[in-house]
Amino acid sequence: MQTNLLSKPTNDKSSHMSDKINHPQLCQWLQSVAQNRDQQAFTHLFKFFAPKILRIARGKFPNEAQANEVVQDTMSNVWRKAHLFNQDKGAVTTWVYTVMRNITFDMLRKIQGNKEDNLSDDIWPIAESMSTESDAFDDHLENKALLSVIDKLPQSQQDVVKGFYLREMSQEQLAKHLNLPLGTVKSRLRLALGKLKVQLGEKYD
């Protein structure tokens, strides 16, 4: 659902977000940080998130220095780990929330239990989100050659193949998801498989 928001075109160039979060804008900034180490994009992200993180942290830590540390460490991780963000897995807000929650969890554990074991990234991974999609992906398509062949299919056939084999959706679910008649889904899948077989040869039968 968040990914739908993200894929909407960015018409509103204004950076002022009065009542609603401008998800496409946040996404663009974070990707610019990930790809170009864009300091200005980071400054925009910082100005959006830092005051809010500070407010939330003040509710959890009575000590102002500790609240500041949450802001510092969270935004530092946003800068350093931006490349681990995957927009297909969710919104920027969700990702930054995860980073912030993990920093907070480890800090509280350090204060309360005097343990510096930093367990949060094992419990809530920030690289691969907890999604079956990535698992299914690894199981079936570790072979990059196969993926590259799929990527050469026409988009309409790619959608069906990826939905059916990588996301393990049924043909009925796919028809609904793609808003197509069931027969179209079936014929596209058949066409795509025919092409894949030709490309990959006998060994993938």
């Binding site: 979060i21 969710g90 907890m130």
Partner: peptide, 15 residues
């Protein structure tokens, strides 16, 4: 968990 995290994040970072 994914859905609830999305919601909490959205609310946390709303103006």
């Amino acid at each position: 968990i994914a859905q609830f995290t999305d919601q909490v994040a959205e609310v946390s970072f709303e103006e």
